[in-house]
Computed example of a mutant assay.
Amino acid sequence: MIAKSRYVVERTFGSQAQWFNVKILRHRSLAKTHAWRMFLAMAYNLKNLSGLLHENDIRKAQS
């Protein structure tokens, strides 16, 4: 039961590690680490945006 919900989060971090080569944090302060993770989340979402838009176009075409 825990694995199903954890998979969604771990998949995101795994993709970030693979795409952006982010396996180690390079900042010691919490503020810099938080800012870095926010930028990674934005980059991850932008990278996935094209796929989401494509899926949305397919759904509209089927309707």
Rank of each mutant, 00 (worst) to 15 (best):
M1T: 06
M1W: 13
M1A: 13
M1L: 12
M1D: 11
I2W: 07
I2H: 06
I2N: 05
I2G: 09
A3R: 12
A3M: 05
A3L: 06
K4G: 05
K4M: 05
K4V: 06
S5M: 09
R6Q: 14
R6H: 08
R6V: 15
Y7M: 05
Y7N: 08
V9W: 02
V9R: 14
V9T: 09
V9F: 07
E10I: 03
E10N: 03
E10M: 05
E10S: 03
E10F: 10
R11V: 03
R11Q: 10
T12Q: 11
T12N: 02
F13Y: 02
F13C: 00
G14R: 05
Q16V: 15
Q16H: 02
Q16K: 13
A17N: 05
A17I: 07
A17M: 12
A17H: 05
Q18F: 09
Q18P: 00
W19Y: 14
W19V: 11
F20Q: 01
F20P: 00
F20H: 00
F20G: 01
N21E: 06
N21C: 04
N21Y: 04
N21V: 02
V22C: 06
V22E: 08
V22M: 06
K23Y: 15
K23N: 14
K23D: 14
I24E: 15
I24Y: 13
L25S: 15
L25T: 12
R26G: 11
R28Y: 09
S29A: 02
S29Q: 01
S29V: 00
S29Y: 07
S29E: 03
L30D: 07
L30E: 07
L30A: 06
A31T: 06
A31R: 10
A31E: 14
A31K: 12
K32S: 10
K32M: 10
K32L: 08
K32N: 11
T33C: 13
T33E: 03
T33A: 12
T33K: 06
H34Q: 14
H34W: 08
H34N: 04
A35H: 13
A35T: 11
A35R: 15
R37E: 01
R37I: 12
R37L: 15
R37Q: 09
M38F: 04
F39T: 11
F39K: 14
L40Y: 03
L40G: 02
L40C: 04
L40S: 04
A41P: 00
A41S: 15
A41R: 08
A41I: 02
A41Y: 06
A41L: 08
M42Q: 14
A43K: 14
A43S: 05
A43G: 03
Y44P: 00
Y44G: 01
L46P: 00
K47R: 15
N48R: 15
N48H: 15
L49Y: 12
L49S: 08
S50K: 13
S50G: 08
S50D: 11
G51E: 10
L52I: 07
L52G: 03
H54Y: 09
H54F: 07
H54M: 03
H54D: 03
E55Y: 04
E55T: 00
N56P: 01
N56T: 10
N56C: 06
N56S: 11
D57Y: 04
D57C: 09
D57V: 10
D57Q: 13
I58A: 03
I58R: 14
R59W: 04
R59F: 12
R59L: 10
K60I: 05
Q62A: 11
Q62T: 09
Q62G: 01
S63K: 08
S63Y: 02
S63M: 07
S63W: 03
S63D: 07
